[in-house]
């Protein structure tokens, strides 16, 4: 840890970046936070891979192979892993496809949908391959803390971060825990 600051990485998997937006919503408290932490891989730094970190924060659930790779990389490198937001905690909106058969789904969208001409299921190796179901993070790796909400409020995120940085077990009070 450079200058004794706590190293933090973040990523958005099968999410909408709404949780990251909410993170930015902690506004001027960011400056206070930045005195104590430094960022590793995040959408804010453009670092491509997560190195050894104290805290990893992940938004979104796992819906494809790439999500799994990133999540595993975070788990390998982060001492503390936090699932941030409804999708990371429950699978969220993307998981509402879980009762559908993936094969039938791809087939309907790309092959049999009326009006499609010469339909083809995209098969570029650059594209991450979808999993048959969307999973909340804790079904794929061990997760240490959970922050529900769609998105969690800036206050809730601030409280969790402040607790983690200070070495307190993170807790949210009434009005800060929300599932929507």
């Amino acid at each position: 840890m450079a200058e004794g600051r706590i190293r933090v990485a973040t990523a958005s998997l099968a999410g909408c970046f709404g949780c990251h937006m909410s993170l930015l919503d902690i506004d001027e408290r960011l400056f206070e936070l930045l005195e104590k932490i430094e960022f590793d891989r995040t959408p804010l730094t453009d670092i491509k891979h997560c190195g050894p970190c104290d805290i990893g924060i992940i938004e979104g659930g796992c819906c494809n192979a790439e999500n799994v790779e990133v999540l595993r990389e975070f788990r390998r490198n982060c001492k503390i892993l936090v699932a941030l937001g409804a999708c990371a905690v429950t699978g969220g909106l993307p998981a509402q496809r879980n009762h559908l058969d993936l094969g039938a789904c791809l087939s309907e969208v790309y092959l049999t949908e009326p009006g499609l001409v010469n339909g083809q299921i995209p098969n570029d190796p650059e594209l991450p391959l979808p999993l048959d179901q969307v999973h909340p993070l804790h079904e794929v790796v061990k997760v240490d803390y959970f922050v529900p909400g769609c998105p969690p409020s800036a206050d809730a995120i601030w409280k969790i971060l402040a607790d983690l940085v200070a070495g307190r077990t993170p807790r949210l009070g009434h009005g800060q825990i929300q599932y929507d």
Partner: peptide, 18 residues
């Protein structure tokens, strides 16, 4: 869990496996 995806896309490259 990627098997259906592999079957539907016909892929079997490294990125199509975990």
């Amino acid at each position: 869990a990627l098997a259906v995806g592999r079957r539907m896309t016909g892929r079997d490259d490294a990125g199509a496996h975990l």
